[in-house]
Structure formats: structure tokens, C-alpha cells
Design a binder for these strands. Sequence first.
DNA 1: AATGAATGAGGGTTCATTCAT
DNA 2: GATGAATGAACCCTCATTCAT
Lengths: 196, 196, 196, 196
Amino acid sequence: MDGFQQRREQKKHAILETATTLFMKHGIQKVPVSEIAKKAGVSQVTIYNYFDNKHTLVHACFLYYVDQALLEFERIVESDMPFPDKIKQIIFNKKETSQINEEFYHYLMKEYTSGETNYIEKIYVEKAVPYFTQLFEEGKKLGYIDPNLSQEAILFYIKMFKDTMQQEEVYKRVLPLTEDITNIFFYGLFGKREND
Amino acid sequence: MDGFQQRREQKKHAILETATTLFMKHGIQKVPVSEIAKKAGVSQVTIYNYFDNKHTLVHACFLYYVDQALLEFERIVESDMPFPDKIKQIIFNKKETSQINEEFYHYLMKEYTSGETNYIEKIYVEKAVPYFTQLFEEGKKLGYIDPNLSQEAILFYIKMFKDTMQQEEVYKRVLPLTEDITNIFFYGLFGKREND
Amino acid sequence: MDGFQQRREQKKHAILETATTLFMKHGIQKVPVSEIAKKAGVSQVTIYNYFDNKHTLVHACFLYYVDQALLEFERIVESDMPFPDKIKQIIFNKKETSQINEEFYHYLMKEYTSGETNYIEKIYVEKAVPYFTQLFEEGKKLGYIDPNLSQEAILFYIKMFKDTMQQEEVYKRVLPLTEDITNIFFYGLFGKREND
Amino acid sequence: MDGFQQRREQKKHAILETATTLFMKHGIQKVPVSEIAKKAGVSQVTIYNYFDNKHTLVHACFLYYVDQALLEFERIVESDMPFPDKIKQIIFNKKETSQINEEFYHYLMKEYTSGETNYIEKIYVEKAVPYFTQLFEEGKKLGYIDPNLSQEAILFYIKMFKDTMQQEEVYKRVLPLTEDITNIFFYGLFGKREND
DNA sequence: AATGAATGAGGGTTCATTCAT
DNA sequence: GATGAATGAACCCTCATTCAT
């Protein structure tokens, strides 16, 4: 990559970074392109030179975010910490991946899971699911996960926890309950019984 | 209430119904007041005669929705079906209460749980929590719920399931997994073991 | 006038009173008919039953105000106080007639002196000018007014003072200068010279 | 200033010019931003690019007008025409400075003299008063102005004349009386006496 | 390639006025 | 005759996007 290309990539990166942060903080509709431009220190038109329109930009931000999240995810799954800790980190580590949140997250969910394209699905299948599979296998082998459970169900379950924790307010309120919730996570409402 | 009042209430109801539906379907920012007016068969200004501004309208829609949901909730909790069925219904009965969803839901969450007022919290504490408490007591007495779990944790857990199911796409995908998920719900990832 | 008529007149009067007050306080454009209705304790439509439209209402308010002002004016001119005091009162008695002011006053001026109708002119010629004439004659006879001055010029001069004083802010600022200004009024910038 | 800046200033100037004229002619509330845009040959949004909102635009128009008026004022005061002619020009030269009038003028007066900021006062004290002072000194030295009169009173007096003349209709009606009014201005109602 | 300037389309809101009871 | 309800028209303002340099 030559110098031109490099600077181009840097600028693109800056825009992406700024936009993603803003979208995550305030939601998509509430962030005008003009504000992204101002905060990123470029002209609006420059943004349009890199991304066809706002929608495309949002799309790119999403991919950018997913990439970061997957990296973090990979780090956790492939680390050598005990299985339960991996799970805890995945569920509770909101702050580590970079705080995605609410409006942005759900806009994406809406935008990308409904209708034709379904990018989230695609990304997940292609990239995240392998890690999850690996994680679940480990869990089953170690006896933490019921081997009768379908992978889809487990995936849903863990994703539900993870997504729920993404919400700032929920996260704050639930933090003191970490112990209980981890228990519920593994043993459900029924709880862990003596004779296990 | 005289005829005037009655018709007034009817119209207000119609607007509320229309607005709530639209907000739930497309999100708040994407639904112009003008569209609500058209769909409700009234003039835009009429809406402003009933609700001071869009924000107020959204607020009213929220209360309207909550009322409906609570009614349904009460019906389930106080019915005489078996405990597990109650739970299933609460979690999976998305379609029965009226399909709340995504942007609207999260706008409200954002709007009402952050900052000073926190209406959702207030409503929940005042109205929903009593029902939940009653439900949990029943579950504990019948041995379905670990009595060591804090009420807050249980509340979080069940609400998480319920909220997750509110999302159209998730719901559709997860429906075939009902059995597995109900199992997870009660027994967690660890699953139900023989000797229980 | 029968009871019906009387009540009708009372209601009309109430509307007029309210409207005039509001117009004088906030200006015409800033006072919606709805507010007049609310403050007067009647329905908007009632106002429209009495006055064809807002313009007509403003017109009526003007006449209503002028009547009051003329009454006050007559009282002063025909009283037996010394001539200079009469002048002072006419110029400075803002508070006595009821505080007309700024936007309302100038809206009227604009609305009624420009174009076809010119109501102010008509009213003045018909009603106020006779009093002024009488006043000027007295002033000339007593040596306070230069007999060579045309009536129009005097009229302009005194009206200018009077109108200027109608402006709240001016009035307040100028009050401490009453003595000087009265002097200027009679003797101009040149001032009163010894040998007069 | 480069070409960009220059064109920007030109456009801003054009908008200001158009807006000021329209405001002065019809009043502020009666002139929609859209009309200014159309008359100035720009898009409505362009106006918002230059001025944050309508209020800001009005403010700018005011300053623009004041600047022009002061320039003209300076020209008169520092010219070498006889003192009485200076006065006449100041009072009667409505058409020369650019015709400010009524609603605009009084809106400003209302807007800017009431409450905290009081821009008119500030501008006058800072910029106009020095010229007035110089003018009054000259008048006193030449015997045209009574040296016992306070500067405030003189200021009020001359400003009153000037403001009154700003009103289109008044101006037209009074023009034939110029001689008389100039006399009144200097010698008041009492008039000039022989032995002066 | 990058920018300042410009804009069409649309959204929330207000208000004078009319309709229907 | 009086009112509550309803509305068309208009206004201020925002934003994604394009133009021109």
C-alpha cells in the first residue's frame, strides 16, 4: 500500500471510529452526518467520498464494530482461563469490547436482521459461530453444558445474556447480582441441587 | 361521562391505538405525526389537540401499552394453569399482548429509564412486581424455583427472556426451539440431571 | 335594551376588554384568539360570533381604546387646572388612560393609517381634533403658544410627545427629566431667555 | 480575505440587505424566512447556514442598520454645513439613511431595550452618543441650545423627533410643515419672540 | 482528493377559522 | 346562541445529499 492509499485508509478509519462512537452513544437517527464530519475533522463531502450515503456508512460502522468484537471474542475463547470465567467475561465484559449500546445496536438488529440481506446472520454464521461452537464443545466436554441441548438453543441463550448486558442501565443494575445470575445461567431457575 | 366525553375518549383511543402500533412497528423517529394522523383518519392538528406534542404522545402510547400488557399478565398469573405453562406463556406470548417491539421498546427504555423520571421502573415496581412476586412464590413453593435465588435475580432473568422474545426476528427463529429453551430456562446450561 | 341584549353587550364588553388588554401587553400577532377566549372565559367560536375575524376584533379593540382615551382627554381639557398642567398631564399621563403600548399601538398606526381606510385619521378629525383645537386656542390666548404656528404643526408636536411617552421604556427613563422636558416642550432647544 | 470569504461576505450582505428591507417594510413576524430567501435569490437553508435562526437574523439586521445609520450620522455631524441644517438633516433625512420603520423599529426597541441585554442602549452609548455630544456642544457654543439643558433631555428630544420621522405616514403628512416644525424644534410652542 | 456552499424534502408545531352539535 | 372538536395553511427549522471550486 503506497502513501496515498495509507493516508486514505487512515482517514477512512478516523471517520469510521468517530461515526461508530457517535452512533453507539446517541443512536443513528440522532447523529447528523454534519456532526460526524465536524468531530472527525473532515468535511461532510469527504465522508460522502468514502461512503455512498449514510446507510452505507452505518453499514461500515457495523462491520467495523463486529470486527473489533470478534477479536475480543477470539481472545477470550482461546485464552486458557477456566471455562466459567470465559462465560462470565463474554457475558459481562461490556466495557472491554467498547461500549456498544442500545439504539445503535437495535437499529442494526432491525436494519440487518429483517428483510432480505440479514447481514448479522451472515456475519455470525461465518465468523462468530465457529468460536461459539468451539466454546460449547469445551463446555460440554467439561460437563458444564448439557450435551442434549441443541447448538441453536445454546447460542440463543448465551447471546440473549450478552445482548441484555449491552444495555447500560440493565448492566448497572445487575452488576451486584453477578453471583446469582451466573448461577442461574448455569443451573436455571431450578438451581443447583445437592446430589449433583 | 356524557356523549361528548365519550366520543372524545374514543377518538383519543383511536389515535393512541394507531400511534402505538406504528411506533412499535417502525420506531418513533421514523413515524411522522402526519402519518399517524392519516392512518387514524384525523387531522394532524387534532392529534395536537389531544397531546401537547409528539413526546407526550409517545409517553401516552407507552402507558397505553403497559396497561394492556399488565392486564394480560394478570390474567396469566392468576389463571389455574400449571406453573410451567404460566412461565411459557409469559415468555412466549408475544402475539397475545400485541406485538411490542424493538425501536419503540428501546426508545422507551432509553427515554424512561435514564435520568430523573424513570417511568418504567416506577410502573414496574408499582404494578408488575407484585404479580411477579406472587408468581415466584408459587414457583418456589412448587419446587420449580431455587429458594436461594434473590428476587431481583429472578426478575432480571425472566424479564430478559420476555424482552428478548419481543423482538420479532428472534421470536421467529427461536420458536422451533421452544422445548430446549424452556429446559434451559429452568435448568440452565447445566441441564436437568437424572438424579433430580 | 332587553335582558338578552344586555347580556350580549356584557359578553362583548368582556371580550373587548380582555382582547384590548392582551393586545396592548403583548402585541397583536403574539396573542392567539384562543388565548383571548380562555382569558375571557368564553369559547373561541363565541368571539367569532361577535366579531367576524381577528382583524375585526382588533378594529373593535382600537375603537374601544380610543373611546376610553377620548373620555380621559375630554376630562383634562375641560378641567380648570392651569394650562401647563393640562399639557403635562396629556403628555405624561400614560398610566391614567390605561397603558396602551408599543406593538399594539404601532400595529394600529400601521394598519389604520396606511392605505384606504385610515381610521385613525378619521377618528382624530371627528373626535379628538375639536378638543385639541379648543386646547390650542386656550394656549394661544394665554400666551403659551405662538399664534403664528399652524394647528397641524402644533398637533403633530404634541402628538409626537404623547406617543413617545406611550413607550414603557422611554417613559421610565425620561421620568426624572420631566422638568427639563417640559421646558423644552414650551421653549424648544433654544430655551427660555431672560428678557421674555 | 480570499475569494471564498469574499463571496461569502457578499452573500451574507445580500441576505442582510434583503431581510432588513423586508423587515422594515412589513414587520418581523409578517416576513417568513422563506420570503427573504426567495427575494434574496437563495435557498431558505442558505439563510440558516449564515444565521442560526430567525432571531439571530433579526439581530444581525439591526446591527447592519445601525451601522449604516451611524455612518450617515457621522457624515452629517462632521460636515461643515450650518448647525440648523445639520439638525434638519438628522431629523428629516429619513430617505437618506434607508427607510427604517415602524414594526421593525419597535420590535427591536421592545426586543432589545427590555430585559437584560439592551443592545440598543449599549450601541447608542458606545457609538452614537459621542456624536450627539459633539453636536450638542457645537449647538450650545453657537447659542442654538440652552446650556442649562441636561444632555439626557436634549438627547431624548432630538431622538424623539428623529424616531417620529421614521414613520412613513407621519413623514409624508408632516413634510409640508417643515418650516413650522423646525421652528417648534428650536423655540418650542412658545415660539421665537421679537426681543431675542 | 477535499472543501465550502447550497438545496429539496420533510418534520414538528401553531393559529385563524369552520363544522357539528 | 354557545361550545367542543376539527382542520388547512403556514412557519421555523433540520438533514441527507449535491454542486462548484
